[in-house]
Amino acid sequence: MTATFADVATLSAASPGLWARAGASVLQVAAVAAGGPLLLGLMGKVRARAEGRIGPPITQGLWDLRKLLRKEAIRAEHTSAVAALAPLVLVASAALAAAVTPLVTTGPVVAGGADVFVVVYLLLMGSVALALGGLDAGTAFGGMGSSRAMTIGAISEPALLVGILALAVQAHTSNLPGIVAASLAHPGWLASPQRLLALAALVVVVIAETGRIPVDNPSTHLELTMIHEAMILEYAGSDLALVTVGEAMRLGLLLGLVANLFFPWGVEGSGGGLAILIGLVVLGAKTATLAALIALVEVSTAKLRLFRVPELLAGGFVLAVVAVTTGLVAR
């Protein structure tokens, strides 16, 4: 196994020991698990302030989780093991994705397998689990939510994959630490047209994947407009807590991924204690900025009709394809 990591170790600046890498991975999972709900709280706060309200405190998401965990889980009759497994798979896949992504350090535990496509397909795994969970109770809402969520997922996936490809082609690898290390070595890439186009495409995808306005309204409970909320209507108590934290982790992970792919400064390669602490703070600042920007966009736009969303996502896909083409032409 050590031979596998050797290449990546030469790509990133140093090769910390296995335990240090494991520690870094656990730290990243913890940071995403705690940071995700905080980012959601921040977005709520920014929206509230922009609308002239005070809004709930930023830590509200964490308090909600505590409340949900103290309530009993109620499952619908007729549900199979899928309903029980879906929240677990959602959280575990998001946690695994957080463990292999270079968020705080470029040397997480499975650096050799830390491929950007692995992260994308781990996120897909969470989506599939939730969609199956939505169908399990056999209610009208759950199925409708699953159908809509899968539709939007199916159309946002191409933009995500091709947007990432634009970066991978530039760095000649799809290995995440490799891309981050290569970006650090070539600061000029940040301003290259292909990066800017890919960034635009990925921001569209992040908005769609995390169910924000204008794609989905996270605060709605009106039947006709619900997507995500319809799918998770049957969850309660600790199950709902898992789904909520899983979704928050996906938001934190995607924002962290975009932040580190496009603004890689502050990601620590040497693995020292202080450096990791700085990396953590920088990551928090970067993702908080992105989250606040998305919240401002949310305040200033209206939700799109469901059948206008594909146009937005197709736009993202076209941007991503143009990004790859630009990169090839410019070479």
């Binding site: 309530k71 889980a73 499952r75 009759e77 056999g138 108590g237």
Partner: peptide, 11 residues
């Protein structure tokens, strides 16, 4: 009672 989920009719 928190350790085992309860069954109830779907909403």
């Amino acid at each position: 009672e928190l350790r085992r989920p309860r069954r109830a009719e779907a909403w």
